[in-house]
Each structure stands twice: as C-alpha cells, then as structure tokens.
Design a protein around this nucleic acid. Structure first.
Lengths: 208, 208
DNA sequence: GGAAATTAATCAAACGATTGATTAATTTTG
DNA sequence: CAAAATTAATCAATCGTTTGATTAATTTCC
C-alpha cells in the first residue's frame, strides 16, 4: 500500500545539504539536520559516522556528479572558439542550476580549517580548469586566439559566474528578484552566457 | 617608561578579525578570541556586548575604511577608459592587500543567516558599483565605449579579482606559492591589473 | 593637597543552554 | 529468529554570556 519508501539516509543528505548551504557547516547543528530530515539524531552517526561524515559524503557525491558531466567537448572537430563557447554554456547552466551548493563550495574554499576538503575541491576544479586551459592554449598555438594570460582568462570566466551567483544584486538591482525563481534564473543565465561568449570572442579573436 | 599601552579593545578586534577570517564566524569561539588577544573573556562582552557585536564592529570599521578610499576619480578630466583603468588598479591593490578580510566578507555574503550583515555589505558594495557603472555608461554615451551589458562587465571585473583571492591556485599552480608572501603578491597584483586593463580595453573599445 | 567617592578596566569562576556523539533498548524487516 | 533500522535517553564537552569581586585610575570634596 505504502510505496512511499522513506529513505532516511537520503533524507539526511538532502536536509544537511540544504542547511549547510543556508547556514554553513558550523552554523548547522545535527539536531537541525535530524529535525529537517525527519530522522532521529542517532541515524546521522549510524549512517555517516559523524557530522563531518555527512559533509564529506555530500561533497563527494556532488564532485562525482560534476566530473561525470565533463563532456568530451575537446573531441569534437570544432573550432577552439566554439569549444570555449560550449564550455561557458555548460558552466553557466551547471552552476546556476546548483547555486546553493556552489555557494557552499566557495565558502569552504575560503576557509583554512578543513584542509582535506579544500584540497578535494581544488582537485575537482583543476580538472575543469585544465580542460579550459587546453582549449585556449590550443587556440593560441594554432593562431586563432591572441596571446593572452590564459590563467587570468579562466579566472575571469569562473569568477564572473561565481560573482553572479553570490552577489546577484550586482547584476539585477530589482528588489523582488530571486535566483530561485525559474523565470528570473533563465534571464540571468542567458545574459551571463551571452556576455561571456561575447567577451571571450572579442578578447581572444580581435586582431590588434 | 613603558609606552607599551596594550589596548585590549583593539587587541580583541585584531584577534577576532584574524580568527573570523581563518575559521569563520561560527567556527571561532569567544574563548579563542580571548586567548589570542590576551584579554579576559568577559572583556569581549564588556566592550562589544556580544560576539556578534565584535563582528559588526569589525565590518563597520572596514567598510568605513573602504568608503573613505573611494577617490574622486570621476572628477578628473580624463577619458572613461583611463578612469576605468584607475578603478581597476585601485580595486586590485585594495583587495589583494586585504585578502583575509575580503574572503570573510564574501563568505558572509553567501550566507542567509545574518540579513543585516548581508544588507550592510551589499550597500557598501553598491556604492563602488555605481561608480563603475557611471564610468562605463558615460563611456558608452559619449561613443568611446561599445554598447555592452554594463552590470555583467562589473561582475567580470569584481568576480575576476575575487576569484584570484579565493582560489589563487587557479592562477598559479606552483605549490609553494603564497599570497601572503609580498613578492608573490606583487606578481599576482601586476598580472591581475594588466589582464583586467587589457581585457576592458579590448572589449570596450574595439570597433566591430 | 589629601582623604573620600566614583568610575573604568580586568579577572576567575560559574551560568544555563547547546553541541556532537553514544548508549541501550526497541521496532522493523527479511 | 537474527540482522538491520530506529528510538529515547544520556554523555562529556563546549558554547556565549553573566556574575561578583578586585584593582587601577580619575574625580569630588573639604
């Protein structure tokens, strides 16, 4: 009769991620997680060993998901510019579809107290970074891109997106604007993609 | 004879800022602050009323410092591009000279639990944003700049700098690299300024 | 000027509340 | 029945804050 299989384990993960995103790791108590997930407090330790175990599990799951999304863009026989544009589109979509997690990740990246987590995030990022690095470097070598500071260009692309997620008021000053509203999110996505594609096109391919 | 006036109040502020930057607000205890500052725990509440009072005081001091640094760049009779370049230089220098605080500010901006603080930071930022907005908009209106998505360009400038501060490994993959090392910091500063000035010049002034 | 009164600064100790974690008992499941 | 899942109760530790007392400095008063 009741097919509603309540997977407490997953419920804990979902609740914890939501709370960690909203109030931070230290700012979230195990009791809050238990309450929000509908599970008993002891279940947290039963399944994940500790509060930190929950956090690590969330990060691992997410990072694994990101890695699997790393498409074989570099295999396609398209121009370097076209590749870069696809990467930008993919990045903007991914990050703006997971704004809460992205915020949490960046928060963790700015702390020095959990070095293992810092390194884990850093490593996960570096894969994607190397992909972009290769695309731009190839473009420079085959003459289709200007000689630029590749790492700085990457910082610009990633930094722009992160900035939009963390401080959307910088882009939209409208007060009743909400990134969680699908309509508003779509607008921001399109603007971000258009801007970054235009920016990279002009900056990388304009002959001086 | 003894001019070593130990201002406990200031010692608390200094220690708290250091700790808040390193381990976050929730991650720092009042006992840590007391120990690090050499003050008695009760002094924190004596001077600032509460732990949050310390935090608010730090933020207010810093934000006031930033506002006072808001130079009258817009008054100078120089081109829009020149103004923008000066703003970029000022921003990079300011933020890279206060990396720890900048990290903390962005961390606070990504949380939803202290709305008053969020609004305070947002307001402080919006002043600087309006300055840049005006410079670019003026440049567009007088025909020296291309028609671009002004808010997105601002997000790019600020996002790039923040990204460098929070994830410097993206720019420098060298393992023994340290943003606290003055020599390394100088290198990053110069690269960031050169990149952003070059980027904005090409993107805003290239005729299509 | 010097005793008396007042204020500011500092301290050790303790407060109640909450933290993450664990126990032992119970229920559910296969 | 045995293993797995779940529960309420409890643990020691730590949290931010408050207390009452003490010292040092300043002000008031005669």
């Amino acid at each position: 009769m009741k097919t509603e299989k309540v997977d407490k384990r997953q419920a804990i993960l979902d609740a914890a991620e939501k709370l960690f995103c909203e109030t931070g790791y230290e700012g979230t108590s195990t009791r809050q997680i238990a309450k929000e997930s509908g599970a008993n407090m002891a279940m947290i330790n039963y399944y994940f060993g500790s509060k930190e175990g929950v956090f690590v599990e969330i990060m691992n799951e997410r990072i694994a998901g990101f890695a699997s999304q790393l498409k074989i863009i570099n295999e396609d026989k398209i121009s370097a510019l076209e590749k870069l544009h696809r990467v930008i589109e993919g990045y903007v979509n991914r990050i703006l579809n997971n704004t809460a997690f992205h915020k949490m990740m960046h928060r963790e990246l700015s702390l020095t107290q959990r070095p293992e987590m810092y390194d884990k995030i850093k490593d996960a990022m570096s894969h994607n970074m190397q992909l972009i690095d290769r695309i731009i470097t190839d473009g420079i070598e085959d003459g289709s891109f200007n000689k630029v500071d590749v790492r700085m260009v990457i910082a610009t692309i990633m930094g722009t997106i992160t900035n939009i997620v963390i401080a959307p008021h910088k882009v939209i000053s409208c007060s009743n604007f909400d990134l969680n509203n699908p309509k508003d999110k779509k607008i921001i996505k399109d603007r971000a993609i258009a801007h970054l594609q235009d920016l990279t096109t002009v900056y990388l391919t304009t002959k001086k």
